[in-house]
Design a protein around this nucleic acid. Structure first.
Lengths: 405, 405
DNA sequence: ACTTGTTTGTCAGGGCAGAAAACAAATTAG
DNA sequence: CTAATTTGTTTTCTGCCCTGACAAACAAGT
């Protein structure tokens, strides 16, 4: 592009005073939100933490209160000398995010407030594979409308909607679910089937949302990690420096088709020896001698817990294959942590030893700290939670999106 | 980009007016630099391209001229109606970057001006493996001093120094070369051996610098790509959205130890079937029946060009192993492009077919466009060039680092 | 109870950076 | 030579944060 070879885009566009204000609003709100609801920070505290002046913080806080993002709590008796500060807290009765989810065996909807707390939670078990997309979307829309109504009763106003789907959403065309093999969807646009045109959600891959939820909610401090979730297919999501990494076209994280045994089992994708043939849900269940009845993952966990040799063997084999693939990921990405989410989280007790062993044997140049591999705390709830949190996180990152009321 | 800009840390710290100024200086300078030296942009052009006002651009340009980053060229007869603009150009006689390189078989030094043009270039063939680090560093320092003196004669003032090394520089401890196996270095700090304490360079991994040079100098428009370079070890560097991705600890890109044949050849690292055992320089030369005399890479290219069956077989095998490893990388990262740099660039004619075939067979869910795999235009010069460019790019990204003169 | 010292939140003044608008300068078209 | 057009600068204005000062609200000591 540049013959002389120089800067493509230094930092995006030019900066204006509005950008400065926007960022400082985000810094103040983010600081208060990051401290958790326990400690009520005062304006002076925020000024000390951020480096802004007390006067500036006051102005910013005033605007954030005006937008409904912050509230002034009771003046707590601090015990220290001097005039006590007025405690600031992220509002639990204003802007909110609505998360929706279409899974293979369930629908879900939830509402979180700006603090990140889930306030409404709905989950309906229901087989959706192969059904017309329009029908399924109408049902999840109804579920979402219910959740939104219940949230309104709590004083929450939904400011954004995100739909978690087990499929690919190319970054070139947001709004399009290009392909969701386990649902049987092809080129589905939720907007085309949504009952209320003013409440259309933005679709996003569920593995990505699960990873983001893990990042936002979990207690650890990994800024760069790989989140693996099994849901029929094996999907990985990469969080890099606290940002979701989607790849150039939005297809990053296809862990399921990493070749683990180059000349091994054929895969429907046309290649051979893909991870999915060894650690995918179907492969593990087949190996363990289980049919897909009810909740097969829970059944498998039960059998393994009871010491069933076939189940243990299947999980060990899956763990080794997974470890092999993750060794490649670790060598390439050097993440802070590896997180097993989705269905893997429930099977972690039996998967982790094999994964750890394989990582220890394969990642030798820079030994992999065993503690950096751990199951997700959120498990299968992550995707729906992440969908709802996405809206509130975006609002915190740019509070000017909030109406001034 | 539905999911963007939502990290736990809004954007780092609060924004000040100085930050705004800094960014706008970078935007203006970057815009002029990005257009190449051919078209001389006027202040009005820059205003139109960036969205800033003409008045603001004038003020910013004045400062950039004062810092020696820009010069006002002759007023070219544009032919169009209206007062002609004064052409602005990035200065070729002011701030510059010094790049240094310690390779296994050579030393190098070069100076680039702010336009990114190399103005001084030195390369000395010399075996450095196993020699005391202090000696080698003293020699490359002398070479750098020579280059800097010659650059001074061209009116160039070195503002920063970077040393390319074939080793690991952990992000936790900049300034430390933790391990450079092919040189026999362990825990070497260039600062401890440098003759002139005011001219100590910052060490950086050569594969990373090669990738950055490729990004900055090449004509393509890939913003996210994997740059593979062979230099005894196999190192990959990841450029993500135009930024070098180092991983959590600075160890990302260990492509050489990705397992390609899980139960294959043992590797000194302790694992089995690492890529390096199949596509590393030593392995390929052994397979081709070549001893490491003179410039073995050039010799191998010559033999392959002459149709030598052993050479062709070795390169085909290496290409297939490399393709297998890159398939994993593509499935994980989904880059815009794959670039073969370093010694691979010179062997591309015979490697690429096998790599392409393997990628086509392995990356099936999202077929890999064959054109997105290509040899580096810079080849083995990339690392040294990148070392010098790193300084000038940092100056363009933050012109306030330049002295006001 | 009262004073002192400390911390908090706000207010007024100043500086800085970009936006908006007006103006002088330099060129082409007729 | 005049009109039109584009450029670059100057002037005025606005927005934002910073500095410094001040009133308010508390604890501790007398």
């Amino acid at each position: 592009m540049a013959v002389g070879g120089v800067s493509r885009h230094p930092e995006g566009g030019p900066a204006s005073q509005q950008d400065m204000r926007r960022q400082n609003l985000a810094v103040v709100l983010g600081t208060i939100a990051g401290q958790g609801p326990l400690t009520g920070l005062s304006r002076a505290d925020v000024a000390g933490l951020t480096g802004l002046t007390r006067a500036a913080v006051s102005s910013l806080v005033d605007e954030l209160i005006g937008r409904g993002a912050l509230t002034e709590a009771e003046t707590a008796p601090s015990g220290r000398v001097g005039r006590p500060g007025r405690a600031l807290a992220v509002s639990d009765r204003g802007p909110a995010g609505l998360g929706l989810e279409v899974g293979v065996t369930h629908l879900g909807a939830c509402v979180v407030d700006l603090r990140g707390e889930p306030r409404v939670w709905r989950r309906v078990e229901q087989a959706n594979a192969g059904r017309p997309a329009g029908e399924v979307l109408a049902e999840v829309a109804a579920l979402g409308a219910e959740a939104q109504a219940e949230a309104a009763g709590l004083g929450l106003r939904v400011e954004g909607r995100v739909l978690a789907v087990p499929g690919v959403v190319p970054s070139a065309e947001p709004g399009l679910v290009e392909h969701a093999p386990n649902l049987g969807w092809h080129a589905v646009r939720p907007a085309d089937h949504w009952p209320d045109p003013d409440a259309v959600p933005e679709p996003e891959n569920e593995a990505n949302l699960g990873a983001l939820a893990e990042y936002w909610q979990a207690e650890h401090d990994a800024e760069t990690f790989v989140h693996v979730s099994a849901e029929a297919g094996i999907g990985a999501a990469l969080i890099v420096d606290g940002q979701l990494f989607r790849g150039a076209r939005g297809f990053a994280g296809e862990l399921g088709h990493i070749p683990v045994h180059p000349d091994g089992l054929p895969c429907p994708c046309g290649s051979r020896g893909c991870l999915e043939q060894y650690a995918g849900e179907a492969a593990v269940l087949r190996e363990a001698g289980l049919a897909g009845a009810g909740d097969p993952v829970a059944l498998l966990a039960e059998r393994a817990g009871a010491g069933d040799p076939a189940a243990l063997r299947a999980l060990d084999r899956a763990g080794r294959a997974l470890g092999l693939a993750l060794a490649s990921a670790v060598n390439l990405i050097d993440p802070d942590a590896l997180v097993l989410g989705g269905a893997y989280a429930e099977l972690a007790d039996w998967l982790l030893p094999a994964v750890r062993a394989e990582l220890a044997a394969r990642v030798t140049v820079r030994p992999w700290p065993p503690g950096a591999l751990r199951p997700s705390a959120l498990g299968r709830r992550g995707a729906l939670l992440g969908a709802a949190l996405l809206t509130t996180r975006q609002l915190i990152a740019d509070p000017t999106r909030l109406p001034l009321a």
